[in-house]
Computed example of a mutant assay.
Amino acid sequence: MNQVTVSIICTVRDEADNVAALLDSMLAQTRAADEIVMNDCQSVDATPAIIAAYAARYPQIRLVRGGHNISSGRNNAIRHARGTIIASTDAGLTLDPHWLARIIAPIETGEADLVGGFFHPTPRSLFALALGETNYRRSYEIDPAAFLPFGKSMAFRKEVWEMVGGFPEWASHCEDLLFDLAVERAGFRRTFVPEAVVHFTPRSTLRAFLRQYYTYARGDGRAGLWTHRHLLRYTIYSTLSGLLAIGLHRPHLRAFIGLLIGSGVVVYTRGPYRRLWSRLGGRSLGERLIALSLVPLIRLTGDTAKMVGYPVGVWQRWRAQV
């Protein structure tokens, strides 16, 4: 049997509508993985059957089962992986054909122990287009030194995973960032490869987006992550509410307050509008106006979801410690 050096791992649950596209993109890599370990985490749909059918045709694909959340499922996949280098991705994505070659290159050359790739939105509707350009920065807007890899696009030496105790299984969200921070504390080297890209589809409705960001923020609160960032958001919105209240009772200040708030909105939406405008070429005037009008609504919805979700997570962390 040939020595296994690179394993792609992924944990899935009820992904029958997209797992085939993910597997196809894994098999189409310019640098073929020595094995692909797919962990099924309690699916009740046809997901494991689809993976098993692929495994019957492609011997490098292995189906394993285990775990109760994404952290434990990912850990189970890695425990079964035989590679010394682990490349991790998630369900609901497709991989650029050069993703694996690019994301493992710094590890193979001895330059890094943990590598973060990037992710690009592939929208299927006008709303998803506006959401993708509002919420997801381009790679050139990222500070490589501060970027923490996401589980959907990362690679690391299996030894690193072992030494930090794997992904924290108590965390149902933010587990990848907690893993990154543990790797950092252990003194391992990290780098960012923006050319290692996976493609994802943004949420298709405002309700689904709100639920997604509520869940993310709740995970932040439970994990104790980004406290200052969340406190800053509360401070900004409290200040905004105060200014609006002053404007209601002080008519002579309304123009000034309106200018102040308007300037803040411009600064807050400048990046999203710049990204979105570059993607609206060929769209009708009506579509452009609709997409542009969605930006502040998406910003407000996301911030509201975070401000509601974060204290719920903090409360859950407190309850777990009592």
Results as ranks from 00 to 15, higher is better:
P311L: 00
V164K: 01
L95C: 11
S43Y: 07
G271W: 08
I85Y: 08
I9Q: 04
A91D: 08
L114I: 06
G66N: 10
R203T: 08
Y310I: 03
G67L: 07
G166V: 06
H98E: 15
A16W: 09
P251T: 06
Y216M: 14
R189C: 01
D113S: 03
F127K: 09
I51M: 04
P272K: 03
A171H: 05
A291H: 10
D17S: 15
A320S: 15
F209W: 13
G313W: 05
W226V: 07
V115T: 09
C10F: 07
S25N: 09
A155C: 08
A186M: 02
T134W: 01
V19I: 15
P121R: 00
K152G: 09
R57W: 01
S88G: 13
R62T: 00
I257N: 02
G262L: 01
A112D: 00
A46C: 09
K158V: 08
C10N: 12
R82Y: 10
W318Y: 14
C41I: 05
Y54D: 01
A105R: 04
R79Q: 04
V4E: 07
R233L: 04
R299M: 10
E15W: 07
S7W: 05
A55C: 11
A52T: 12
A291Y: 09
F209Y: 13
I8E: 00
R82A: 13
Y310R: 01
A186Y: 07
H199R: 09
S25C: 03
G258F: 08
T205C: 03
A56F: 07
V44C: 07
T11P: 08
M307Y: 11
Q321V: 13
I70Y: 05
P59Q: 10
L240K: 14
E111T: 14
S172N: 14
M163L: 13
G282V: 02
D220K: 15
N135G: 04
